[in-house]
Design a protein around this nucleic acid. Structure first.
Lengths: 140, 140
DNA sequence: ATTTGCATTGTAAACAATACAAATTTATAA
DNA sequence: TTATAAATTTGTATTGTTTACAATGCAAAT
């Protein structure tokens, strides 16, 4: 369980709550698996049989626009979402494809924006490589 | 012009050269615009009318796998490629969508991989926000 | 000259994501 | 409460990117 309820999270980000939005936010907060739109859709279809996939798309995009969730484009095959918005980095294994949270390196946020030509709103740091279990696994 | 020819770059990364691969690498090295597959395809169709888009997909993927190019998944709408493989970060403007190269912050490469659970092969750092000209532009 | 193997091509298919309009729900005001 | 407006959701149709795959081309090796 999370310390803040899904409803409170939505209200905190100025997002008007609805049954679908609460369910989707609750899923994000209780599943730290960086799910895709489809994974959220399939999982929530059990409790909300009328749920439309378009709603999941719209809602997750809405969350990301309000800063209530992160849209991760690390894997070129699929967009993932993260309910943990506290700054952190990610690691993706190129073999099993799993995404894991890792510490943000010191100084990553303090960008040398030569001449302040840019107004930074989001910082993304991630690594690709092989996770422990895939290193030990024999090659495919 | 680049100091290393496209051919030498391919050979340096152990990639068997061909007319198409040389042309695609040359395009990457002489156009620092982070092009998409389609942009490369359209541009090279003039010199190589028989070029297939599938070949561009395969070739750019091959380059990325051999470390001869970077595959950028910053923009969720399109995959971009970068012929500059020297470590650097990127900035993407959320309004005009342009990608720019920026300095890699100090320490971004030295990840605290608690327990060395991961073998890092690539490090990606990018920022999203508003570029100078889009800040000055009136809102849409 | 044949064979071998990789590269390329082009079509077909898969798939993710979006647009859109109808239907539903919720909020607001009379 | 009822009517009206606004917002949200739904489902289908569509778009566009990416991949799969089989056929073809090409060049080096035998």
């Amino acid at each position: 369980m999370t310390d803040r309820s899904a409803l409170d999270t939505l209200l905190g980000y100025g997002i008007h709550p609805s049954v679908q939005r609460i369910a989707i936010m609750d899923y994000l907060l209780t599943h730290r698996t960086h799910p895709t739109v489809d994974e959220v859709y399939v999982a929530l279809n059990k409790e909300i049989p009328t749920l439309s996939k378009t709603t999941v798309y719209n809602t997750l995009r809405l969350f990301a626009e309000h800063g209530a969730a992160l849209m991760l484009t690390i894997d070129e095959k699929k967009i993932c979402f993260d309910g943990v918005v506290k700054p952190h980095a990610h690691f993706m294994c190129r073999r099993c494809g799993r995404l894991k949270d890792v510490e943000l390196p010191e100084g990553a946020g303090t960008l040398q924006l030569d001449g302040a030509d840019f107004m930074v709103e989001e910082t993304h740091v991630y690594y690709k490589g092989l996770c422990r279990s895939c290193q030990e696994q024999p090659q495919a």
